[in-house]
Design a binder for these strands. Structure first.
Length: 472
RNA sequence: GGCCCCAUCGUCUAACGGUUAGGACGUGAGCUUCUCAAGCUUAAAAUCGGGGUUCGAUUCCCCCUGGGGUCACCA
């Protein structure tokens, strides 16, 4: 390896929609690459499309990156750099490498369709390629609609991709690319080149869908005498049917995952493993470990299906790692206003959810005992009377336990010792139902420990009343 | 359709040209068990097909097939 410039990468989203998980992964790989190589991470907002760019989307992007913990070292927007692009546009215009094109949009569309049906690669015919200066001036003065096109020379372009190796193109099949609407309105392929060069970006890491833009950009880079950066094209994230990830199958906005109660470290872990894998058989890694082992050369070439099941598993394992206070804080916004989880309550549900949003339906009974059918108290088809009896015995025991000793471990140890091992269910089932009002819930001892003596007794008394066998 | 890219269990993936092709998610079974989870054990599950090169190919080459991307006055 020769001594080279300090690594500098960028994430360049356009604020025309909510931050997409695919883009979030691109940002993540860039960030990791920068950290792994002691480099700089730049966030560049590509808002040259003024009609579609919206401030709220820009906000969504920065919030999403912050949530994931992907801080940036530099930040700028293309809309603030119009003068710079104009300067280079004029330079190339002066050199004749860019020219004015007055072709009508709908006319070009007709040509395009015609070529497509003929089985040809659609390509601009070059109608305006050689208009003489007088003609151009005349039409400009007249205010004719126009765009600026970059003259594509016929040549072979080859570049070395960090993840795919050599990729080559024959530029003769490409038509002259539109680089700007006018001097003050550059388009993507042009603005990218200027910014990457001026900002001294050393490595361009982006999605596979940009491979075909790369030769055009290299041509412009060459025309301007800039240095060609290294490229690394990441595989796409796919739907279960292996098409490009879309809303038809799953949420595509990072925000949706955040809102649904996925943890940022889980999301980072999951996204990093979509198209990349460390040498060892590791599945759960935090971002620092990933940075330590990251090698873009190991990135996968084929697309990766977004497997929500795996994300869920990963998320549940990260939730289990949360300490009780963190868990309570994290779940606050998912439960009703007046509800306040205690550490004991939190402990009973922390290991049972995959997403924080699921917590509400698991803890509700702590705050509002659900209406339930007395039949639910019946244990495996046995007499309801038995349930009532066992609950009554339990009640007597519970009353004997001093309030300050009323804790899960003690209750479990003492009550269990009173029950014959084979028939614990006779007691534990109805008691648990009485405490939770549900057919499925945390265990009775966990619940009693969480709600305390008084409430436990009240709920069991209530259940006995429901059976209508108060006097047993 | 042209061009470009890609191809290991259902999914994410591992395997200096020599492994019983490994792990994880999911699925099945079992254990545990008062329910639901969790946990533990375990099983089934893959090198797309065809040619080469080689003593030997998941690995290198070619072809086929399949999939994807892209061909905007979006990025």
């Amino acid at each position: 390896m020769t001594a080279s410039k300090k690594v500098k990468v960028r994430f360049a989203p356009s604020p025309t929609g909510l931050l997409h998980v695919g883009n979030a992964r691109t940002a993540l790989f860039n960030w990791i690459f920068a950290r792994a190589n002691g480099g700089t991470f730049v966030l560049r907002i590509e808002d040259t499309d003024t009609a579609r760019s919206k401030p709220e989307f820009e906000k969504d992007i920065t919030e999403g990156l912050e949530w994931l913990g992907l801080g940036w070292d530099e930040y700028y927007k293309q809309s603030e750099r119009t003068d710079i692009y104009r300067e280079y546009l004029e330079k190339l215009l002066g050199e004749g490498r860019i020219y004015y094109c007055f072709c009508a949009k709908d006319e070009l569309e007709i040509q395009r369709q015609a070529m497509l049906t003929q089985g040809l690669a659609p390509k601009y015919m070059g109608t305006c390629r050689n208009l003489d200066k007088e003609e151009v001036k005349k039409r400009l003065d007249r205010g004719d609609e126009h765009v600026l096109r970059f003259r594509i020379p016929e040549t072979k372009i080859e570049f070395k991709d960090m993840v795919r190796g050599r990729i080559s193109f024959d530029t003769s099949i490409m038509g002259d690319v539109v680089v700007a609407r006018d001097l003050d309105n550059p388009l993507y392929n042009f603005a990218v080149v200027i910014d990457d060069a001026l900002n001294e970006i050393t490595h361009v890491i982006r999605g596979e869908d940009h491979i075909s833009n790369t030769p055009k950009q290299i041509l412009i880079i060459n025309a301007l005498g800039f240095r060609v950066p290294e490229f690394g094209h990441l595989p796409l994230i796919l739907n279960p049917d292996r098409s490009k990830l879309s809303k038809r199958f799953t949420d595509t906005a990072l925000r949706d995952y955040k809102d649904d109660g996925y943890l940022a470290p889980a999301m980072v872990n999951f996204l990093a493993f979509l198209g990349w894998h460390p040498k060892e058989n590791k599945d759960v890694m935090n971002i620092d470990e990933i940075v330590k082992e990251f090698d873009i050369t190991r990135a996968q070439k084929g697309g990766a299906v977004f497997d929500i099941e795996k994300l869920n598993w990963l998320n549940s394992s990260y939730i289990k790692e949360l300490d009780l206070e963190e868990f309570i804080k994290a779940t606050e916004k998912y439960i009703s206003k007046g509800w306040k989880l205690t550490p004991a309550m939190a402990e009973t549900v922390r290991g049972r959810i995959e997403k924080l949003s699921e917590v509400k339906n698991l803890v509700d009974f702590y705050f509002e005992l659900p209406e339930y059918d007395p039949e639910l108290l019946r244990w495996r088809g046995g007499p309801l009377k038995d349930s009532a009896l066992h609950m009554k015995e339990t009640l007597e025991f519970l009353r004997s336990v001093p309030e300050e000793e009323f804790a899960q471990a003690k209750l479990e140890k003492e009550l269990l010792s009173k029950l014959p091992k084979e028939s614990r269910g006779d007691t534990l089932w109805p008691v648990r139902v009485a405490l939770s009002g549900k057919s499925a819930s945390p265990g009775p001892f966990e619940i009693m420990g969480a709600i305390g003596k008084k409430e436990s007794i009240t709920r069991i008394e209530e259940a006995i009343k429901k059976t209508g066998m108060l006097d047993i």
